[in-house]
Design a protein around this nucleic acid. Structure first.
Lengths: 197, 197
DNA sequence: GTCTATACTGCGATAGAC
DNA sequence: GTCTATCGCAGTATAGAC
């Protein structure tokens, strides 16, 4: 029992090591410019071992995607538990995304920039993924309880979160002069003003 | 003279044929999933002929990029000539982009969705490209002449154009229920309200 | 489970006839 | 200028020892 638990911890550690390297390389050079030998070199894990833990290169990309979709969902769930009002929830989600972008830019680069459809056959576009669906649900619930004025659900979601996501993209592209966090106040006040009831 | 002019027309025709096929294939499957044989098959132009007109596969992607950057710049220039006020210019630019998206979705898919940095070594991110710079200049000039209230230039540009670009992305991803044009009125009125002086 | 060595495939690019 | 045939190689995935 103790042994098998140690084994599974090791097993997970190798997987995480490979995923961490894949995240770094995919975010920096893209999926297609990253070869298995690249991952071998960067992670220190051998080809054979990688193929023992993952069925193929695509499987690595999928596991990585799932890992960070889950990470973003957790982030949103935590905020939904801590805050009741849609206004606070939206604001804190944006702050959390900004913070994630500055602390782990590669996560956001892989999740937002990568065209997953090009290599993951049956993945939905990122904006249809669970975390983004839930962000829209937060906005819709704000419309139901009267915090946000009645309007098309897509439009209100874009008004609330679209600007923040664009700034994250700008930051990842390196075209912002100031750090991301300095844009928050102006961004949030105009975003919220455009939708509040 | 007549002959050389015919020749150069033919020369251009072959180039355009190849570029049209490349646009179709790159937009649909991405640059890396499109092989030279794919382009040969789709365009009906032979491998040898393609390599006679283009130095390599990357050169095709660059020519395609330049062609449509120029197309978008022309579109903006025309609008700047026809309209004086920043409000009208911004509105017409969005309408033109919507119209282009519905009439030539592959152009917008290639220009907005493709991660050109992954294969074009020294290209700037699309949002730093000339057409997008000029869109921001239109907004800045609106701030100077008092149509748009004073605020960070990046923020005002995102407020004006960010929502429209997000909706274009949604449309290309196929997650909108209604045709793109039906979102314009609601989108434009909230976008302009958020920046007008 | 992890390693090295290698088999196999498909692509980008070229050669050379016409 | 256009074509067919083919070279060379990079990269995925496997085989098989340890």
């Amino acid at each position: 029992m103790a042994e098998s638990s140690v084994m599974s911890v090791r097993r997970l550690q190798v997987r995480e090591t490979v995923l961490d390297s894949a995240l770094y390389l995919f975010a920096q050079k893209g999926y297609f410019n990253t070869s298995i030998p690249d991952i071998v070199h960067h992670s220190g894990v051998s080809t054979g071992s990688i193929y023992h833990h993952f069925s193929d290169k695509l499987d690595i990309a999928c596991a990585l995607y799932d890992r960070h979709v889950a990470q973003m969902e957790t982030l949103i769930s935590d905020i939904e538990q801590r805050y009741e009002q849609a206004e606070a929830r939206c604001r804190e989600i944006i702050l959390a995304l900004f913070s994630l972008t500055e602390k782990e830019p590669m996560v956001m680069a892989y999740m937002l920039h990568g065209r997953h459809q090009d290599f993951m056959p049956d993945v939905t576009p990122i904006c249809s993924s669970r975390p983004f669906q839930r962000m829209r649900e937060v906005v819709v619930s704000g419309m139901r309880n009267g915090e946000i004025r009645q309007m098309d659900a897509m439009l209100s979601s874009v008004c609330v979160f679209g600007g923040a996501l664009k700034f994250i993209q700008f930051h990842l592209d390196g075209i912002l002069e100031k750090p991301l966090s300095e844009y928050f106040d102006g961004l949030w006040s105009t975003a919220w003003a455009s939708v509040r009831a």
